[in-house]
Design a protein around this nucleic acid. Structure first.
Length: 438
DNA sequence: TCTGGGGTCCTAGGACCC
DNA sequence: TCTGGGGTCCTAGGACCC
């Protein structure tokens, strides 16, 4: 089994596409007042910036000149797909865990019978090909007898690491590790395990199955019992079925205005419905998620007799669930989701009128979303965004101020470029697609 | 200027059914 | 002379992952 984890992936793509950021601290994530860090480059980690930390905290820790960027997911996805393609050359059984992580079942491919030396050579070659194909993005690789060992291997030597765990040496590697290095042991479980003196995986392996079930529940307890013994027969699943589709948003300020909240629900239901239709899914359960001013979070759901992918129906149910839940004190977050998915919409197959599921005509407005309110000029721009200037060419947004936007003109294949400031409503400046790094 | 967004899986209680 | 047993579905919450 092979596990690949791309190093500080979002930040690495930013540094590839923005030469002036290479070797400098970069933080990618929410750039608003309530944003959190998705990825910090290793340079930014040196100052204490970490994933999941509030961006405000990361700003406090990092020096002036640190780049704080919103994410460019189209660019990350394109790079990820190149990498996943390289993995599929190793074996047909590739399981992407996320945009920057995957397992490969080498035993299902041509490398099935390689020795430890053989898979080490294979991994070296893979890392070289990834860097070459992505414009320099690196990854850490672990190889072992199971998902567990492969993942631990990739963790052990980051960044740009390569660790092969020879068969037979699993327990020796595993037992000294802290329990928190096992997937599934988060803060809550760690707390309960620590309370009874379990700190290492070895400590865990010394406990009986009934003990662990009492501590962590039936499924989780049995899982821990087995993982502590390096018993892991989890298969690589190449095509995981989607179970739910959702959209949520944390507001810059808590919202109380019911009309405004209603518009947010409509917009999120439109996104969810659109994604369902694009994937030919429909679902029976509509869930509204809300987080109040005091961070208390709750969900309310309703299950329909028939699956739907209709944005208006989804919105209507979510609106009613919101009315029942109430908005007292103000809402920090709203979310709309659909689960209980099945393939193919259950619309009236014989309807004459085109349904909501039909692709919109060229240039047609989205079915539900109201026309986007015109953003104030400076709100159209966000740090890290790809732009193009009619005369100066491609670049990216470095910063924005009152009525101003600052752009650096450079691309993945240019040297670090010059900076220019424009009026935020400069007609010569436009949003652009991600640049090609190849 | 504390605490994102998109997911998965598990648990538990009540309704309902045979 | 209390209380069946097991299954499924629905709802809600929580832990966890990247």
């Amino acid at each position: 089994m092979l596990h690949l984890d791309l190093d500080a992936f979002f930040a690495a793509v930013e540094q590839r596409d923005k030469p002036s950021l290479r070797g400098r601290p970069v933080v990618v994530g929410g750039v608003g007042g309530r944003g959190v860090v998705a990825t910090a480059s290793y340079e930014a980690r040196a100052f204490g910036a970490r994933s999941a930390m509030s961006t405000a905290e990361a700003r406090r820790r990092c020096p002036a000149g640190t780049a704080f960027l919103g994410g460019r997911f189209a660019a990350y996805r394109a790079t990820s797909e190149v990498v996943m393609g390289l993995l599929r050359e190793l074996s047909p059984l590739v399981e992407p865990v996320s945009i920057d992580e995957a397992y490969v079942d080498l035993a299902a491919g041509p490398a099935a019978d390689l020795s430890v030396e053989g898979v080490t050579e294979l991994a070296r070659d893979l890392k070289e090909r990834i860097a070459a194909a992505t414009g320099g993005v690196t990854g850490s690789v672990g190889i072992g007898s199971s998902k567990l060992m492969a993942k631990l291997g990739s963790e052990m030597d980051k960044p740009d690491g390569l660790v092969v765990v020879p068969p037979g040496t699993e327990l020796e590697l595993l037992h000294p590790l802290p329990v928190t290095s096992l997937g599934g042991v988060g803060p809550a479980t760690a707390e309960r395990l620590h309370a009874v003196g379990i700190r290492t995986v070895g400590d865990l392996a010394a406990r009986s199955l009934p003990d662990l079930v009492a501590l962590a529940g039936r499924a989780h307890g049995t899982g821990l019992y087995q993982l502590a013994r390096a018993e892991d027969d989890r298969a690589v699943v190449a095509d995981r079925e989607t179970k739910s589709v959702s959209a949520e948003e944390t507001f810059e300020r808590d919202l109380t205005d019911r009309t405004l909240l209603g518009r947010e629900i409509d917009a999120m239901a439109a996104r969810v419905g659109g994604r369902l239709r694009a994937a030919a899914y429909s679902g029976r359960t509509v869930t509204l998620k809300l987080r109040r001013y005091d961070f208390t979070t709750l969900t309310r759901s309703q299950t329909l007799p028939q699956p739907t992918d209709d944005s208006r129906l989804i919105a209507g149910i979510a609106q009613r669930l919101l009315d029942e839940a109430g908005t007292a004190g103000g809402l920090r977050l709203l979310g709309v989701g659909v689960s209980g998915l099945s393939l193919y919409a259950q619309g009236d197959l014989f309807a004459e009128e085109p349904t909501d599921a039909a692709p919109p005509a060229e240039g047609a407005a989205p079915a539900v979303a109201e026309p986007e309110p015109e953003l104030p000029a400076e709100r159209r721009w966000w740090p890290g965004q790809d732009v193009r200037h009619d005369e100066l060419g491609p670049g990216w947004v470095w910063g924005r101020g009152i009525g101003r936007v600052t752009v650096r003109f450079e691309g993945p294949l240019t040297p670090p470029g010059p900076v220019r400031t424009f009026p935020a409503d400069d007609p010569e400046l436009h949003p652009a697609d991600p640049p090609d790094w190849r």
